[in-house]
């Protein structure tokens, strides 16, 4: 079937099987390799993408379910040359070890900060719950999201 998606702001068209999962369309057809496969059961959070701004596990979604919607992956948030403040904060805090969980963490953190620019540590824990990370013990990830929030707030005030 024909599937239209807006991926990182660009309207795209794919030919997919009706049973195709969003994770596979994104990784294999759209070239978004940042979407990671950790469990295919909705348990690990590695495959998280933003669907119209909401973080969802792409391994649990049929591609057809999100036809016409807007999908964001970390490729759409920044690049090594122009990183998103969340990327910079995670790197600087030492919160990226193997990095496999990081794209999902960034997207859920972005969704949190879009809604609540001034989160508490408890808010961050809540937002990142379900993003399994076996490397870092989460301490530096939570710290990094709080740092990024502060930086984004300062940036906005500066712009005012």
């Amino acid at each position: 079937m024909r599937l239209e998606l807006t991926i990182n702001g660009v309207p795209r068209v794919f030919e997919v099987a009706p049973e195709a999962l969003l994770i596979d369309v994104l990784r294999e057809q759209a070239g978004c390799r940042s979407v990671k496969r950790g469990c295919e059961a909705g348990d690990c959070g590695a495959c998280t993408v933003l669907v119209d701004g909401r973080p969802l596990a792409s391994c649990l979604l049929l591609a057809g379910q999100v036809a016409g919607r807007s999908i964001t992956t970390v490729e759409g948030l920044g690049t090594p040359e122009r990183p998103h403040p969340l990327m910079t904060a995670l790197v600087e805090a030492g919160a990226v070890q193997c990095g496999f969980c990081i794209p999902g963490v960034i997207l859920s953190a972005k969704a949190l900060l879009d809604e609540n620019p001034n989160p508490t540590a408890a808010d961050v824990r809540q937002a990142l719950d379900g993003h399994l990370c076996r490397c870092t013990g989460y301490v530096k990830q939570i710290e990094a999201v709080l740092n990024a929030a502060a930086r984004l707030r300062a940036g906005k005030e500066g712009a005012r």
């Binding site: 970390v74 090594p80 990183p83 790197v91 030492g94 990095g99």
Partner: peptide, 12 residues
């Protein structure tokens, strides 16, 4: 900072 971290965070 870990030398490979930014690329990972940017989803390379």
């Amino acid at each position: 900072p870990k030398i490979d971290a930014l690329g990972m965070a940017a989803g390379r």
